[in-house]
Write a protein that binds this DNA or RNA. Structure first.
Length: 930
RNA sequence: GGGCGGAUAGCUCAGUUGGGAGAGCGCUGCCCUUACAAGGCAGAGGUCACAGGUUCGAUCCCUGUUCCGCCUACCA
């Protein structure tokens, strides 16, 4: 066939787009239920539908695509199922910002029109990330693209909610939850990020009611919450205070007195004064203590985390204090309270204090514990089987270091708050009969707005509806028409939506058609592997395992591979505000998609974050170019007859490269099975650059360039065969360049995508060739070193001698005369040392191998002498070390015999080397003297 | 506070049953040798964080210390 002309450098952009469209058009990525292979399925961790591809996605998706393409080539029935999630809070925030920029708001728009607006936003930006994924070469079955809010998945959400509710595993109740006063919604425990910050510890004095001259001092980091204190706790065994239990203190700034109680859980006698104020409505520990002692809960903050005048009055706060702080946010109220306490002489001291402050993971606003009715999943019954699944290995977590992390969290898991006070998401399928619940449904004027603003609102938005804890919902798959209790038909639907993770927790089966019993579920569930980052192990992975076991009766996936976080070159977390983000799209434009993918794979070592620097990507861009040029070389020489000989009858370079290829196939496959993408990638890189290009292509040039060479036809065959095999081995990592080159080589089939993955061929394994090569490599290296020592130009034709002090090895060398001549650029004599000239010769020795190079003209021999002197010293040092060990009786008596024998052999070898080096040095000095 | 991981060449990292320290990038020198200067060849560079212990022998196993990350937690 004619050799196609390949350009001198590889241009990824044109190639990538062309092939991706072709792959899609021909449907190579489509899964088929009829496929005879064993199923292999990955569901993609759904990215935010309105987001765009960042480098973390690029890593996550590249690794999945490597696994998928590899398994596809292995003949498995592959499904990679793509999709996106609706990212409730994040997406709602984005659209709200747009509205504010337009001078509108979601309240002005109303719920229905707001949701329409979000769908519009999804329609305009929803394809962005999908197109970027395609640019990355992802071989997903795009026909099966799913979205957490689409009809099928919403049906699954409804079904799960109703069933869990029926079983009593979902309940509604008033609890203290994490509340974001900016997003105005509840958050689950893990949506709160903790950050160390500097704060203050305020010591406040509470006078005893029966003895006001005596004061009980309590410490707090949040003095403004003291207005809502309902008790002070001391340790029951603390002799300083326990006689006060049952007495009362006067709460400063209020008209109230509160009891002193004994509590050994809340109180740490060592900390502070040993007395603790209790604010059950604004602190999780205090809430628990309040439960234990039946204390009232007095909230003092509203949902914007401002001091609420109505609540303050209800809490008996003095009117002057209310006037001073009402409607102030916490940060502004705190100094006012501090000043008021100081005025009253109630503030004992203020110390600096380090504390961890909780922030909203979406908007970084300080989260407040907030008392409100919410929906929860009772999690213990779901967690128990999910713990067992990992303990027994039904789900494998890789690297397994994360197993304890998972188990620890699961064993201490808290009920999951699933309701969110936002509009974008799956609205909770609970309806309240307005007649039966007349007393528990409160409609108040919207407190978040000044009255003038509130007047502008449509009536439906003007109210804030609060459905109190006692309300009785009807939970159903569709809206009820009649109240089962009173028969009336007017209902209010619960306005809350579900946590986004509630729907993504169903992802491995909802995307396959559940709750319908589809053939897809039957074929692909449990899925094979989940590839994800550590950051969503709890958010997502744990919940998928719990819900998968609950509703499918089986784990959602067999393996969970947890990969690293991508950081910048300095190890900093990438963030837009720091301006250190590496944009994968820009990288792909600049260096090519294959280079980016290969970089990420090669750096994916387990248990270590990836510090990504552009130079690395550039390095692998160069690798792609190297492959490209090797292919150009092949094309220049593939014309002519080709002959397929049995491997054992091929020439030495052919046998050697096939043996190396055999080994590389073995390593790449084995490491992929162990999810060691880094080792697989490095094996590919090392093989191709440093064995295939550096040595093999050089070794076969004589056979290729001489038209009448007897090994020509076989060499051409092996060249083509080895290159084609390597491209298949490489394809999962570098899909584009491998396809582009593969297409130009002789091949069967229409695409590399569906070719079989190479398997190790035992007939290619050749220890003899490998051993011979090791000698050749070292010998050639030594002649090149000698050339540099003598300042010979690289092209200079030299006269050389090579031998080895072991006779059999010397025989092996003798068979390599032509290879030495070619790579060493000169005339090589492979005879015993006795027949070498004894002057005008620079000799180098290592491990019994000696190379001599003829010294011509007036060259400076000093560099060579220095080199020999240095090497002799090193040899001497190593000799001392080994001899020392062998002289040690304990070593000789206790070390294993093979280690002793090895030491002795090495010592002998060193001794011979040393003799040879010393004689070389004498010879050189003689020449210098002459 | 608890848990986990890391500390190996200038940088980023391998090193899997303890026995002669490796790679990539970078650096230095020489080369535009017809596949490739996005390249070739040669080379410099490391008491494997520190201190003990186990062992004939420790980068590797054990203990402690220091430093850096991450996760987690209610010390008011």
């Amino acid at each position: 066939m004619p050799s196609p002309q390949l350009d001198k450098t590889y241009e990824p952009r044109t190639v990538e787009d062309r092939w991706y469209r072709e792959w899609i058009a021909r449907g190579y990525f489509r899964a088929s239920l009829d496929h005879p292979g064993k199923p292999y399925c990955i569901v993609i961790p759904p990215p935010n539908v309105t987001g765009s591809l960042h480098v973390g996605h690029a890593l996550n998706h590249s690794l999945q695509d490597i696994l998928i393409r590899w398994r596809r080539m292995q003949g498995r029935n592959v499904l990679w199922l793509p999709g996106t999630d609706h990212a409730g809070i994040a997406t709602q925030n984005v659209v709200e910002k747009q509205l504010i920029a337009e001078g509108s708001s979601r309240e002005l728009l109303g719920r229905e029109r707001f949701i329409e607006r979000v769908w519009q936003w999804k329609a305009t930006s929803g394809n962005t990330i999908v197109n970027q994924q395609k640019q990355l070469g992802e071989s997903c079955d795009w026909d099966r693209l799913r979205f957490t809010m689409d009809e099928g998945l919403s049906k699954a959400v409804l079904e799960v909610f109703v069933r869990l509710h029926e079983e009593g595993l979902i309940y509604r109740g008033e609890r203290l939850i994490n509340w974001c006063p900016r997003c105005l919604t509840a958050l689950s425990d893990i949506e709160v990020e903790h950050e160390d910050s500097k704060g203050k510890l305020y010591s406040i004095e509470y006078p005893l009611e029966h003895d006001p001259a005596t004061r009980l001092t309590v410490a707090t980091t949040r003095p403004e919450t003291m207005l809502g204190d309902t008790a002070v706790a001391v340790h029951p065994d603390d002799p300083r205070y326990n006689h006060l239990i049952g007495r009362r203190v006067r709460l400063p700034l209020t008209t109230r007195t509160i009891p002193i109680i004994g509590d050994n859980i809340l109180v740490d006698r060592e900390f502070g004064t040993g007395a603790v104020k209790i604010t059950p409505a604004h602190d999780f520990n205090d809430y628990e203590a309040g439960e234990r002692h039946q204390l009232p809960r007095l909230p003092v903050l509203d949902h914007h985390a401002r001091l609420d005048p109505v609540s303050l009055r209800a809490a008996g706060v003095e009117q002057a204090v209310v006037d001073a702080v009402e409607l102030l946010p916490v940060a502004k109220a705190r100094p006012k309270i501090e000043a008021l306490l100081r005025e009253r002489g109630a503030l004992a001291k203020v110390n600096d204090h380090k504390l961890a402050i909780g922030k909203c993971y979406r908007c970084k606003t300080v989260v407040e514990p907030y008392l409100s009715p919410q929906w929860f999943v009772k999690i213990q019954p779901l967690a128990a089987p999910a713990i067992k699944a990992v303990e027994t290995g039904h789900v494998r977590i890789i690297p397994e270091g994360w197993v304890n992390n998972y188990l620890g969290w699961m064993r201490d898991i808290k009920d999951w708050c699933i309701s969110r006070q936002i509009w974008w998401g799956h609205q909770i399928p609970a309806w309240y009969c307005t007649a039966c619940n007349a007393d528990t449904i409160l409609k108040t004027v919207h407190e978040g707005m000044a009255t003038s603003e509130a007047r502008e609102l449509p009536p439906a938005s003007r109210k804030r509806i609060t459905i109190l804890q006692g309300a009785v919902p009807v939970v159903a798959r569709s809206a009820p028409t009649q109240c089962p209790r009173c028969g009336k038909s007017e209902f209010l639907r619960d306005p809350d939506v579900l946590d986004t993770w509630f729907s993504s927790g169903l992802w491995p089966f909802s995307t396959l058609g559940w709750p319908d019993r589809t053939p897809e579920l039957k074929t692909y569930y449990p899925t094979s592997t989940l590839v994800t980052g550590l950051d969503i192990l709890f958010f997502w992975v744990a919940r998928m395992i719990m819900l998968g076991l609950k509703f499918m009766g089986d784990v959602p996936f067999r393996d969970v591979y947890i990969h690293a976080l991508v950081r910048d070159a300095e190890g900093q977390k990438m963030s837009k505000s720091k301006g250190n983000v590496i944009d994968p799209l820009h990288v792909m434009d600049q260096f090519g998609t294959d280079a980016l993918r290969f970089t990420l794979a090669s750096m994916a070592s387990p248990g270590r974050d990836i510090k990504l620097a552009e130079e690395r990507i550039e390095g692998y861009r160069n690798f792609a170019n190297k492959i490209w040029n090797a292919a150009r070389f092949a094309h220049m020489h593939l014309d002519g007859t080709r002959e397929s000989r049995p491997p054992a009858q091929r020439s030495f370079p052919e046998r050697w490269i096939l043996s190396r290829l055999h080994d590389t196939i073995r390593i790449v496959t084995q490491e992929l099975e162990a999810y060691r993408f880094d080792r697989s990638a490095n094996a590919l890189y090392h093989f191709f650059w440093h064995e295939y290009c550096d040595w093999y292509l050089e070794l076969i040039k004589p056979a290729l360039q001489d038209a009448s060479h007897p090994d020509g036809p076989s060499t051409r065959h092996t060249l083509q065969e080895s290159l084609e095999t390597f491209l298949r081995l490489l394809h999962p990592f570098m899909p584009f360049i491998s396809e582009e080159i593969w297409q130009t080589l002789p091949h069967a089939g229409e695409t590399i995508v569906t070719q079989s993955y190479p398997t190790a061929n035992a007939a290619w394994h050749s220890p003899d060739a490998e051993q011979a090569f090791a000698l050749l490599e070292r010998g050639v290296g030594m002649t090149r070193t000698a050339r540099v020592l003598l300042n010979y130009p690289p092209g200079k034709h030299v006269t050389c001698f090579v031998t080895h002090d072991d006779a059999a090895t010397a025989q092996t060398l003798a068979a390599l005369r032509q290879e030495f001549a070619h790579l060493g650029r000169g005339q090589f004599t492979l005879q015993p040392l006795a027949q070498w000239p004894d002057s005008k010769l620079l000799r180098l020795t290592l491990d019994g191998l000696t190379v001599g190079i003829h010294v011509e003209g007036d060259v400076d021999l000093n560099k060579a002498v220095d080199r020999l002197t240095k090497q002799i010293a090193e040899t001497e040092k190593e000799t001392q070390r080994l001899a020392g060990k062998l002289k040690n009786d304990e070593f000789v008596s206790k070390a294993p015999p093979e280690v002793i024998a090895d030491h002795q052999n090495r010592l002998q070898g060193l001794s011979r080397d040393r003799e040879m080096l010393a004689s070389s040095e004498r010879q050189l000095r003689a020449m210098l003297g002459a």
